[in-house]
Design a protein around this nucleic acid. Structure first.
Length: 273
DNA sequence: CCAGCAGCCTGAAAGC
DNA sequence: TGCTTTCAGGCTGCTG
């Protein structure tokens, strides 16, 4: 599932290929999750940005084309227009090249249709609740350990649930939440964290996300880079997907349970309550 | 306002 | 073998 490291990997790949280009033609699947794609026709892309798991294509006309990859979304390019028989294609944008070069098409595929596309006025995220209420970016200097601790203290829900909520920090999903909690030796069901443990968790969230980016994302099944390649982070996960396998710190078998409708894996010894 | 949860989706894997 | 059930889960929107 694309989380911050996967979206950031895509953002970096897309930036040089999209910046300054104009969308001259576009199409979408019939679902209203994707139909806003065509509102970008005639717009020029000024910047390729990211907020949490949302990809933000800033347009020169004070709007933003927002793409969320959901569970199975991928972005790729092809020289030609889309194949009409491409059954998982949900949206596409034909990009005009600068003067002498050829145009190409940006394709958005999404098998399960959990993704979505929106166009909003720049910075106006009121119609996208999760984005509107998203906490700071992980490396925002304003995100001090003190602030992180305060944001967590606002809720009494399990820390795992809070990380997934995007509110204490933006961009963490199920994989990196389990990895960060394992690294910080914090039980996912804990509902309150002291200042010191909150600080440790923030460090480990940052470390887990950085490692994900450095490895080009985690490909469990669907995630692909713009070039169709897979990530490398799936080979260095310590907790996610390792239920029943030995803890890399203490050798105890990891256990799992469903927390907030997500399978959560942790070490019953290192991450004791 | 927050917490809790159904619903959205489909292919792969597991179960029978 | 082949059919059925379960599982994966980010986000929205509804209810209490």
């Amino acid at each position: 599932m694309p989380e911050l490291p996967e979206v950031e990997t895509l953002r970096r790949e897309l930036e040089p290929r999209l910046t300054g280009r104009t969308i001259v033609e576009s199409g979408s699947h019939w679902s209203t999750k994707f139909t806003p794609a065509v509102e970008a026709i005639d717009a020029t892309i000024a910047e390729v940005d990211r907020r949490g798991k949302f990809l933000l294509l800033r347009l020169v006309d004070q709007r933003e084309l927002i793409v969320h990859l959901g569970m199975t979304g991928t972005l790729s390019f092809r020289a030609a227009l889309p194949d009409p028989d491409d059954s998982y294609l949900r949206a596409w944008w034909r990009l005009a090249e600068s003067a002498d070069a050829e145009a190409e098409t940006l394709l958005f595929h999404d098998v399960r249709r959990f993704g979505r596309i929106r166009i909003v006025r720049t910075g106006d995220y009121t119609s996208i609740p999760t984005l509107h209420h998203a906490g700071p970016e992980p490396w925002d200097p304003a995100l001090t350990p003190k602030l992180f601790h305060e944001l967590i203290a606002k809720s009494r829900r399990a820390i795992k649930t809070q990380l997934l909520s995007q509110r204490p920090v933006a961009g963490v999903g199920n994989i990196y939440a389990d990895e960060a909690l394992w690294a910080a030796e914090i039980n996912p069901r804990v509902t309150r964290l002291g200042q010191a443990r909150a600080e440790r968790l923030l460090e480990e969230v940052r470390r887990a996300l950085e490692k994900g980016i450095d490895n080009g994302g985690t490909t469990l099944r669907d995630y692909r880079t713009v070039h169709g390649g897979i990530g490398g982070n799936q080979y260095s996960l310590a907790a996610y997907g390792r239920s029943g396998q030995p803890c890399l710190r203490c050798d105890t078998d990891l256990i799992s349970a469903v927390i907030d409708a997500r399978t959560t894996t942790w070490c019953p010894v290192c991450q004791r309550r």
